[in-house]
Amino acid sequence: MFSKMIHNKIWQKPHRLLQHVQSRLPSFAFTSISNHIKSVINRLNKHNPLKRKNYDLPLDKNEDTHFLVLLIALMSFLAVLSISGTIAMDTMTNRWSSGLENKVTVEISVETKEGHILSQETIGQETLELYKMLSKHPDVKSADVLGYEDIQELLSPWLGDSMNMKDIPLPGLIAVELQNIDEDGLQAFTKDIEKTSRYAQLETHREWLSDLIHFTKTLQTLALIITIIIGFITVIAIAYAVRTRLALHHNEVELLHHMGARDNYIAEQFRGHAIALSFKGGVIGTAAGLVVTYALTLLSSHSGTDLIPVIHIGAWGIVILCAVPILVCIVAVATSQLTVLRNLAKMP
């Protein structure tokens, strides 16, 4: 149904366009233009894999055709999910990295290194001293003291909105955005903070961020491996289907060979069939995969919690996902061509 629809839309449109142009152009100008356009259309139609073709071999009559379309659709669906997962993770990692770049947090802990509990008054004074120093520091772009509301907002995913923060001893937190400084500059900045307050600790986020990025990179590699495995299974399935068809139609293939058909003539029949099947399966699977990806994107953006990251695919991501049926077709064509030629080479 899809292939017929696409055939009608893409390949018959030029003919309608030609008729429209014909009605508006004077006949003398039209003749040469229309001949040229017709030859281009005929050339296009000659290579149109979706155009119904009278195969010398009854490849489209096989019972497992629907199974193969289903299998390719399933593989395309899994490939789309796997690729969209990889893209989403990449976008997420970039967002985390760029969001936390040059950002540090200075903290006055409630409990000191020696195990003493600081009063809220002391924490407030130390925080203020630090803020004054940071405001004048040459390496600091901006510094913001986090109030009760900010800390409550940060902790709400874990503790809930109903918790009264006044009952809990809270640390002093200053969010600092630094200028672009190197490792030495960061060490000097740490010393300046320690000089101002002996209770202050610098949290650069680098350690946990690098762990997180490492984890997502591992997941991305895993997704890539899964995509390769899917591709490999698709290749095996198509090769197996082509070999089965070659065995089923051995007599017909042999007859064509004996009549002087070139290997490429026979392979072309299988190629056309493989394109039609893989395109059909690829489009169905990719469409289903895109629907699921879109549903997951909507779900993540309306989850209402910051714990679930928002999935974002982006324009390039969609382009890559939409290219899956074309990739499937390329894989199918290459597999079918190689399988047929290898089998035909055994004939004298």
């Binding site: 009278n54 010398d56 071999l57 009854p58 009559k61 017909e252 007859l255 064509l256 009549m259 002087g260 058909a261 003539y265």
Partner: peptide
């Protein structure tokens, strides 16, 4: 070839060439 008409069967060698 059982799936082809008499015409298409006869036309095969010409198509092949």
């Amino acid at each position: 070839l059982p799936h082809l008409s008499a015409f298409d069967n006869v036309a095969l060698p010409l198509r092949i060439s």
